[in-house]
């Protein structure tokens, strides 16, 4: 599957990555190359093979329903460009 310039532009926008218009055809070509490389895997017959989710036989780890975290408003907000009264302050988003 080949990625055209329009698709590259859309994917960049959805991922919130600024790609200048002049770079788009290069990006499209690189993405197409990656996909083409991955497509070689389609040559392998995986009928009746379960998808592998882990290289070792592991079970999903569970946590107990206990409060063990939180109460760290200062740390949570520490990297925010702007805060007000304990909130993150962001450019207005209104529906």
């Amino acid at each position: 599957m080949a990625i055209d310039v329009d698709t590259a532009r859309k994917v960049a926008k959805l991922a919130r990555i600024a790609v200048p218009e002049s770079e788009l055809s290069k990006v499209a070509k690189e993405l197409s190359g990656i996909l083409k490389f991955m497509e070689r895997l389609n040559e392998v017959d995986v009928t009746n093979v379960q998808p592998m989710t882990s290289v070792t036989p592991m079970e999903l780890k569970l946590r107990r329903d206990e409060i063990t975290d939180g109460n760290q408003q200062v740390s949570v907000l520490a990297n925010a460009p702007d805060t007000k009264e304990g909130f993150f302050a962001v450019p207005k988003v209104v529906e």
Partner: peptide, 16 residues
């Protein structure tokens, strides 16, 4: 492990 309690101080029931 952060609490689900409603009405807490903003951003206080937050784990990383």
């Amino acid at each position: 492990g952060a609490s689900t309690l409603f009405g807490a101080e903003p951003n206080s029931n937050v784990a990383f």
